[in-house]
Design a protein around this nucleic acid. Structure first.
Lengths: 124, 124
DNA sequence: GCTTGACCTGGAGTTGCTCCAGCTTGTTAC
DNA sequence: GTAACAAGCTGGAGCAACTCCAGGTCAAGC
């Protein structure tokens, strides 16, 4: 798969994929004879996961660390699996915070929309 | 109220409040004899609202526009109320998107945590 | 053989903060 | 009275995470 299709499938932009590669957040990306990036199913799956994580606010430094850990066995580096788990748990807490923020803002918006809605309705 | 208390109460940092003022996102901020910023209840309420909006990803340009519109009567500038409402509706859609992203990521995390949890559990 | 299109690289620009140096101004401690 | 401290001020640099752009390569189609 070429970079355009990888971008479409993953939801990341072409520029972001290149940026993530440079930043060490992707496993080594293969190239064809022309030097173009080629993405297999596993690589695209990884991009999709990164997209989910960044859309929900995981910092790049965590994504990079996670990328490194995923390709480390616990036998080779004891504690790797535990650290991976810790990163995911930290992000789960971030998600919970995000959800609370979204809920609070929803209440605020609903209130304001009903107030402004009445004003607009009254004038038009 | 001084800037430290305004920051604590609103959830914005002192630097962010100053930055927002410079960026035209606050109604004119009063100063005391020393030149220090003073925030009354209304100003702090506005800061709290901005905090909710930025935490949920409203772009600065919309916050600024909203700030301008809030101090505009519909009589003075026809359509002001409608535009204010439109900004809020746009943000409500952003919230819906955010919620979907959070949900999708939650599913992903739950899955990964259960998989990695088993691995870690097996090795320790 | 020339144009088109997909890709490449390196680097500049953008958004939204965040941090810092250097200064002023009251207040408290000696 | 003055030294030290705390709280605030400004202007500007730095940073995260992209995003855009100029200039170049290379295979394919006309």
């Amino acid at each position: 798969m070429n970079i355009t299709d990888a971008a479409t499938t993953s939801g990341l932009s072409i520029d972001t994929i290149r940026f993530y590669e440079k930043a060490g957040m992707l496993p080594p990306v293969r190239r064809d004879a022309r030097g173009w990036r080629r993405f297999d199913a596993g690589a695209v799956e990884w991009l999709r996961n990164l997209e989910r994580l960044r859309a929900t606010g995981m910092p790049m430094v965590d994504m990079r660390r996670f990328a490194v850990l995923v390709h480390t066995t616990d036998a080779a580096a004891p504690g790797a699996a535990a650290e991976r788990l810790a990163i995911l748990h930290t992000h789960a807490e971030r998600l919970a915070t995000r959800r609370r923020e979204v809920d609070a803002c929803q209440v605020f918006l609903d209130h304001k929309i009903s107030v402004y809605g009445k004003i607009t309705g009254g004038l038009t």
